[in-house]
């Protein structure tokens, strides 16, 4: 494996992506909206509009909370329980949107975007194997997605702890389920998302077309949100671990399919 060539292509993809304004807006806008503005608003509700806090709205969600956690949550006041549930559990699925969208955007730019800019053909003439090209494109999307996810986790933690401190009078984030979410599920979700985008980008003619066609990748996240709110399951540590294993299996399967799509013969006929 020619790691020097792989590193060069990754660096090129990142520099090229960094020069795209749409990508910057997504890099900053998506995490700020999903992991700062929305959760801070939710966490501040008990302080700003206490009359709006009605735990009956969360009853369905609480149905599937494991008994141990339920007992712990029972010790909190109503507004504290709201803050705990909102910051630690309700935003878990939202958090997964960050690695998912970031990796998808960079992967779409790296393949469909290169086709659109007519630079892909030149890359295909270089002495780099199909496997090396695939690894370059995957890592160019995956590494920044994971880095931004980690930064987002830290920013989210600071934001909700600060916003909720008035209600909780202590640091209350993260609950243990966040560790497997950040370090097991998020990388898997990110890999699966970029593998899907690679498959779509191999056929798509432009960056925007690839992005639009990849829109359905958020469906599993919506399923997690709906599943939790409807009381079907609760994203406790064990459930998150299980989801992590499941997503890794899906991600590896999708990556295998995507590998076959990054072949010169397939790509060059579309440039």
């Amino acid at each position: 494996m020619n790691w020097r060539a792989i590193r060069a292509v990754i660096r090129k993809d990142l520099l090229q992506a960094a020069s795209n304004r749409i990508i910057w807006v997504s890099f900053i806008g998506v995490p700020v909206m999903l992991l700062v503005i929305m959760p801070v608003g939710m966490v501040l509700m008990p302080q700003l509009v206490p009359e709006q806090i009605d735990l009956r709205e969360l009853e369905t969600m609480l149905r599937s909370v494991p008994p141990g956690l339920k007992a712990r949550l029972g010790a909190f006041l109503a507004d504290q329980m709201w803050v705990m549930l909102a910051a630690n559990y309700m935003f878990m699925p939202f958090f997964l949107l960050v690695p998912m969208m970031i990796s998808s955007i960079i992967a779409a730019d790296g393949i469909a975007g290169e086709k659109e800019r007519k630079t892909l053909e030149g890359l295909l003439y270089m002495p780099i194997s199909d496997a090396e090209l695939f690894i370059s494109k995957v890592l160019a999307a995956w590494i920044p997605a994971l880095a931004i996810t980690l930064v987002s986790f830290i920013v989210y933690g600071l934001a909700v702890n600060l916003a909720g401190y008035g209600t909780m009078q202590r640091l209350f984030f993260p609950e243990p389920a966040w560790w497997p979410l950040v370090f097991l599920v998020a990388p898997a979700v990110s890999l699966a998302s970029l593998a899907v985008t690679v498959i779509i980008s191999a056929k798509a003619k432009s960056f925007m077309a690839a992005q639009q066609a990849s829109g359905f990748i958020v469906l599993p996240v919506i399923a997690l949100m709906v599943g939790q709110v409807s009381g079907l399951f609760f994203l406790s540590t064990w459930v998150v671990l299980l989801i992590g294993v499941l997503f890794w299996a899906i991600a590896l399967m999708l990556a295998k399919i995507a590998t076959n799509k990054i072949s010169r013969d397939e790509l060059v006929t579309q440039v």
Partner: peptide, 26 residues
């Protein structure tokens, strides 16, 4: 190979474009 549409990366400088090629070609 010089392709019909020149393969140069707009978001990179000329030096960075040449570094990429030099590194990939070893």
């Amino acid at each position: 190979v010089l392709t019909e549409t020149p393969t140069v990366y707009d978001g990179l400088t000329a030096r960075q474009n040449l570094e990429l090629v030099g590194e990939v070609y070893g």
